[in-house]
Write a protein that binds this DNA or RNA. Structure first.
Lengths: 152, 152
DNA sequence: TCTTGTTAGTTACAAAATCAACTGTTAGCA
DNA sequence: TGCTAACAGTTGATTTTGTAACTAACAAGA
């Protein structure tokens, strides 16, 4: 019988995190995909504008850590669907201010309700203590490779 | 001043998990990509065979939760690079037994060392208690949408 | 044995992500 | 002013993924 290796893939954090992320994204994805035909990048842009209000594509990129080409395409899609408008900045004409339309805000609010309910369901599996530890740990891990975090 | 929305994207678990997963995968990805030209699916297949020994593509799929087309392509790539061999099963000639070659085992062992060291580094940010809570929570979340878990 | 249904794995095509090069604009400075 | 470098955002080419349809093999019952 061939010696079984003792490395446990299920304990390897990058792998485990990916499994958890994918599994927990599924149910939410089904909704924004089927209900609005959106992509992941699209709901993210929608949420950034819904939560923080007017901002440029660049700032969305800094906050969300998505590449600017992804954002550019997501913005184009959302504009096409009349969920947002762009306005070239007077001060710096390279950048455009993005802002949700009424329809965009409505979509955002609906999806936000779904997200909140879903998050509650996910979190309900854990004690308040566990939730705190989990969220704090995930935030730390999300800093991996950035200034201030390890591995850079 | 427009009312700032109170939904906190940084607390939304699917989003937070994704951020943590991506950030923490980066450093490891750099290594298997630059050193072996591998894709995520490829190191996963390599690891499954390295850890558990001979198995079929199908079983890798069940364990890793990757779609069979991804696995099929990863296996083809790994075979091309002479990291594994396939052998059609005598009992059921639809399936093929996959097994690492010597070169495959060497690559696996090297990457395993990297993975273990990296995981240690990541985990070092947390107390033993926090680590237990984190890993347990991630395993639960990874079950989301499966039989036995919520949302199905 | 024939039919029907299921399974393992592959392939073809469409959708999406990545990467590099591009446009137009601003900023710094000689 | 005129030159160069940097920056915001877009576009096009390539790579990777996802979806569906496919082949080949098995299984089970009429």
């Amino acid at each position: 019988m061939p010696k079984k290796d003792d490395f446990d893939l299920q304990e390897f954090l990058p792998y485990l995190l990916n499994q958890a992320a994918e599994a927990s994204s599924m149910a939410f994805q089904k909704i924004y995909k089927s209900r609005y035909g959106m992509l992941r990048t699209e709901w993210r842009v929608l949420f950034h504008l819904g939560i923080y209000g007017r901002m440029t594509a660049n700032e969305i990129g800094r906050r969300s850590n998505m590449h600017k080409t992804k954002i550019s395409r997501a913005v184009a899609k959302l504009e096409e669907r009349r969920f947002l408008t762009r306005e070239r900045s007077a001060g710096d004409r390279r950048q455009e201010m993005l802002e949700l339309t009424q329809a965009g805000r409505t979509a955002y609010r609906e999806l936000r309700e779904v997200a909140m309910a879903y998050d509650d369901e996910l979190a309900a599996q854990f004690s308040p203590q566990e939730q705190r530890v989990l969220r704090a740990a995930l935030k730390k891990l999300a800093q991996t490779g950035r200034a201030g975090g390890p591995y850079l």
